[in-house]
């Protein structure tokens, strides 16, 4: 189950997000689509569920959304902006 670690401060700017990592002192910007995926992933949603949630919002077929979500979640996990508790 994925979530945002306490070391990450999330700031909303319009419909986008800035993710500020206290461990590394760096910050990242997520566009509106990335922000929605991050918000759902930080609630523990897996890419399949994210795709189902966002199918109505995004103008793309669910398999494509799921692929994009999985790719972004993997990058966020690698950067330490999400952690996976494995539950």
């Amino acid at each position: 189950m994925t979530r945002a670690p306490e070391s990450v401060v999330v700031s909303r700017l319009d419909d986008e997000l800035a993710l500020l990592d206290r461990r590394t002192g760096t910050y990242y910007g997520l566009d509106a689509n990335g922000a929605r995926i991050f918000e759902l992933a930080s609630k523990g949603y897996d890419p399949g569920r994210i795709a189902r949630e966002l199918a109505a919002e995004f103008d793309a077929p669910p398999p494509e959304i799921e692929r994009d979500a999985a790719e972004l979640v993997a990058k966020l996990l690698e950067a330490g902006l999400l952690v996976d508790d494995g539950a």
Partner: peptide
């Protein structure tokens, strides 16, 4: 969006040991 922060953040004056970079960025954001 987040480009606002990227545009302004380089001009934050930060003092090592006094200012917490990320918390100051968060306040600015």
């Amino acid at each position: 969006g987040a480009a606002r922060l990227a545009l302004v953040a380089p001009f934050l004056q930060l003092l090592e040991g006094v200012d917490d970079r990320i918390m100051t960025l968060a306040k600015l954001a």
